[in-house]
């Protein structure tokens, strides 16, 4: 979905901090983060490990409580995990006693919705990621990449407004990872959901995002935001373009890597 400055803000973080008490030491995981994600946009949180990007994502998802600051989602203050949010993690977390399609439908069961109404949707999603013939397979019969495809279908089954993606393809090999990123972009633009992706891969962040929030470690804080103006859908050729390289270099400089 093209970036549009007029579009509404879906997620807003204001002065969000997270502190842990470790013995007598206070560890600041995240310090005064101000950030917003607009409806339909693809936002990346980019930074080295320890920069608080996962912490920020987990706070947005309601899995962690912020020590300070206000988080609003669609104008409502965040208190606990919401059902219009879908989270994806590095591990696919497929339950081995369920078939692929049963795993995809798990959120529907948990939400107490009628599964029958969503079977067609699940089949459609599986078809979009080329998994139709594996709908009745068990996760342990699938490769890691295929499991993440199924997890992608699962996170989209209830049409969440907000996708929170914590390095979802981080455990996959480079080739599978690129394909999966393409699938993710395709499905995200198809569903119109807002996506927030946590990554430490600079070119991946540039390739995927409308905006990149660059973060630094100890304490985790926001360095700056990079706008990525490339048209959608993004094609692999983008990697070769000089404008692409320029943004990668800009991100590296902000991270102090240049």
């Amino acid at each position: 979905m093209p970036k549009n400055n007029d579009s509404k803000v879906l997620v807003r973080l204001e002065g969000v901090s997270k502190k842990y008490q470790s013995g007598s030491n206070e560890i600041v995981a995240l310090s005064g983060l101000d950030l917003e994600a607009r409806e339909g946009e693809f936002l990346s949180l980019l930074g080295p490990s320890g920069c608080g990007k996962s912490t920020a994502l987990n706070i947005m998802g309601g899995l962690l409580k912020a020590s300070e600051g206000i988080i609003t989602i669609a104008g409502e203050e965040m208190t606990k995990p919401r059902r219009d949010i879908g989270m994806m993690f590095q591990q696919a977390v497929m339950f081995p006693w369920r078939t692929t399609i049963e795993n995809v439908l798990l959120p529907i069961e948990v939400f107490g919705l009628n599964k029958k109404d969503y079977v067609a949707k699940a089949e459609e999603l599986l078809e979009m990621v080329g998994m139709t013939e594996f709908a009745k397979s068990y996760p342990w019969q699938l490769s890691g990449g295929m499991q993440q495809r199924a997890a992608l279908c699962r996170v989209l089954i209830h049409h969440p407004k907000l996708l929170l993606l914590d390095e979802p393809f981080g455990a996959l090999d480079e080739f599978t990872r690129e394909t999966m990123n393409q699938e993710l972009l395709r499905l995200q633009s198809h569903s119109g959901s807002t996506a927030v992706l946590v990554t430490h891969n600079i070119s991946e962040a540039v390739f995927m995002s409308d905006r990149i929030a660059v973060m630094s470690a100890r304490p985790g804080r926001l360095i700056g935001v990079i706008d990525v103006p490339f048209e959608r859908p993004r094609k692999p050729e983008l990697y070769g373009r000089p404008e692409f390289t320029k943004l990668v270099v800009q991100a590296r400089e902000m991270l102090g890597l240049a």
Partner: peptide
């Protein structure tokens, strides 16, 4: 069940009963 499995169920805002029925019980079988 692993920490990742518990976290996933929590991200769905699953109740304790759901956590038990859909994750812990099948894992224990």
């Amino acid at each position: 069940p692993s920490a990742a499995e518990f976290t996933f169920m929590r991200s769905l805002n699953a109740t304790r009963v759901q956590l038990f029925r859909k994750l812990q019980m099948p894992s224990a079988v």
